[in-house]
Design a binder for these strands. Structure first.
Length: 496
RNA sequence: GGCGGGUUGGCGGAGAGGUUACGCAGCGGAUUGCAAAUCCGUGAAGACCGGUUCGAUUCCGGUACCCGCCUCCA
């Protein structure tokens, strides 16, 4: 069995992964607060976990992995959005969840096995809070329930901080009813205009952290294997989750392995609205950046390193993927290469896995019939070698969620409508005639006119002509292109 | 102030105490009317200062710079 090693934030070491139960490997990823479109940074942990889940399923079996990712659908940001727009909270959260699904699907991310919504687990949260009070780890004060951090000696261990240090450097004003400045809210009272649920402490709503403790317990049990999210969640969110869950279940371990991905930057700077470099996944998709390209760029940097999103990377990724798609043809995937699997098993080294794909690509090229034909006769063994190499390459790429049918739209020929295509075809044959007649001056003139119509004419071997659209995604150019083609056709007196 | 991450060739980006990462770009060549695409070949590195070692870009210490978190954030 392939040995998987993961860097555990809890121990700060790369460790061999040993599941609690080989037949049910359990993971929890902190999901989005659903009040707006997911920004690009939100996609990073999703893709990291996507690769992790694929790897775990490969190693432990398709049905031996349970992947949970929550939706936080009770939050003051959502309340604010509802108040600002006059829409109901449920409308906003339903809509945002649908967006989230669409956007993550576009990146080829598999859906988790469970996607619990916080609002569906309020009773479990109330029960856990009650339990924490009974155990002396939480207390009620002025309608709030607070977690008593001094009651949990390990508080701060995950993030390597001491409660005293944090208090010394704290920049927040402290609510007067807190016993300790670091105590955090488990339950808070709701006004009439805020969403609320009845509880032993009055009508209110949960604090942010308790939902993950309650939902992971409900769906994965008090002890499970892997818990993840962005490194910014390490403190306070994950620290607080640990405090809640470990105090509610002292006999359990909660999450054994903590995985945290580093942050995303844009052109070397933090993505922020004030810098004007803030954008969502949908913004990129709408700009015509294929989801597969976003995925490739994300996976080309190891998850524990800061990742810089740049235009250059995007272009390079696009060029690479195009080349890869070109040699795939009608290949059937076989088994992924061990090189790819081993790279991923080593702390999800996606960058190294992509390097392995480049090598597999080279092997396919090496045996591709036109190449082979050039040297000597082709033996059937050589053909078979080529077919096998291609199948392995495809399966390996598929393992990373690349070169899949689902993400292939952008490499398929764009259809601009019959009118345009008929015109292009007839102009192509005119160009071919000019070239056959060695009338290159005229041929180049036609070519440059076509370029102005957003179409590049390309000469190919064997007296062929091909063409490609220069702006395949800008459908709004269709009218312009049609018009230009018609005038080209007329001026060159091309018969229909 | 506290905690954490980073610094690799022109750019991006990995691994490994001693042997080619890899990709893009560049350069040389093949092919081509031109061009594109493709193919073959190729140079180029590890912030700085010390230490450990037969040997460090890789381990240890320090310096500088960059970034993030400590408040909602993936």
């Amino acid at each position: 069995m392939v040995q998987i090693r993961l860097t555990n934030t809890r121990t700060r070491r790369k460790e061999v992964f040993e599941p609690l139960d080989c037949n049910d490997v359990r993971l929890y990823l902190c999901g989005p607060t659903v009040y707006d479109r997911a920004h690009l940074g939100n996609a990073r942990p999703v893709l990291v976990f996507d690769v992790l889940v694929r790897l775990l399923r490969h190693v432990y079996g398709e049905d031996s992995v349970t992947y949970v990712r929550n939706f936080t659908d009770v939050d003051d940001k959502i309340n604010a959005r509802a108040a600002a727009t006059g829409r109901t909270i449920r409308e906003i959260t339903d809509e945002t969840i649908a967006w989230y699904h669409a956007d993550m699907d576009a990146l080829g991310a598999l859906r988790p096995d469970h996607e619990p919504r916080a609002t569906e687990y309020i009773p479990q949260m109330i029960a856990m809070i009650g339990d924490l009070i009974a155990r002396g780890n939480a207390y009620e004060a002025e309608g709030h329930v607070l977690f008593d951090v001094r009651s949990f000696p390990d508080y701060g261990r995950l993030s390597g901080r001491s409660v005293d240090d944090m208090i010394a450097g704290a920049r927040v004003e402290v609510a007067p009813f807190k016993r300790d400045p670091m105590d955090f809210v488990l339950w808070k009272p709701s006004g009439a205009d805020q969403p609320g649920w009845d509880s032993p402490w009055g009508r209110g709503r949960p604090g942010w952290h308790i939902e993950c403790s309650a939902m992971s317990e409900a769906l994965l049990g008090p002890s499970f294997d892997i818990h993840g999210g962005g490194i910014d969640l390490q403190f306070p969110h994950h620290e607080n989750e640990i405090a809640q869950s470990c105090c509610a279940h002292p006999e359990a371990t909660f999450a054994n392995v903590w995985l945290h991905n580093e942050m995303l930057q844009v052109e070397g700077k933090k993505m922020s609205k004030s810098l004007g470099n803030f954008f969502t996944v949908r913004d990129l998709l709408d700009r015509g950046v294929p989801g597969e390209v976003i995925r490739f760029v994300m996976l080309s940097t190891h998850y524990r390193k800061p990742m810089d999103w740049t235009e250059v990377k995007m272009k390079e990724a696009k060029a690479v993927l195009r080349r890869w798609w070109d040699i795939v043809g009608n290949a059937e995937p076989s088994k992924p290469s061990p090189h790819v699997i081993l790279a991923l098993a080593d702390d999800l080294n996606t960058s190294s896995a992509i390097a392995a794909l480049h090598q597999l690509y080279d092997e396919v090229r090496q045996w591709q019939p036109p190449q082979v034909e050039g040297r000597t006769g082709i033996s059937s063994e050589e053909i078979q070698t080529w077919i096998d190499a291609r199948s392995e390459f495809l399966a390996s790429a598929n393992f990373l969620g690349l070169l899949t049918e689902a993400l292939s739209d952008w490499v398929k020929p764009t259809t601009w409508g019959d009118d345009i295509e008929r015109l292009v075809t007839s102009i192509c044959s005119k160009w071919l005639k000019l070239r056959r007649a060695r009338n290159y001056e005229q041929a180049d003139l036609l070519k440059s006119q076509m370029r102005a119509a957003h179409i590049e004419l390309v000469a190919e071997k064997g007296d062929q002509t091909n063409f490609k659209y220069l702006n395949p995604y800008k459908k709004e150019l269709a009218d312009d292109i049609l018009q230009k083609l018609q005038s080209i056709k007329e001026s060159w007196e091309i018969a229909s």
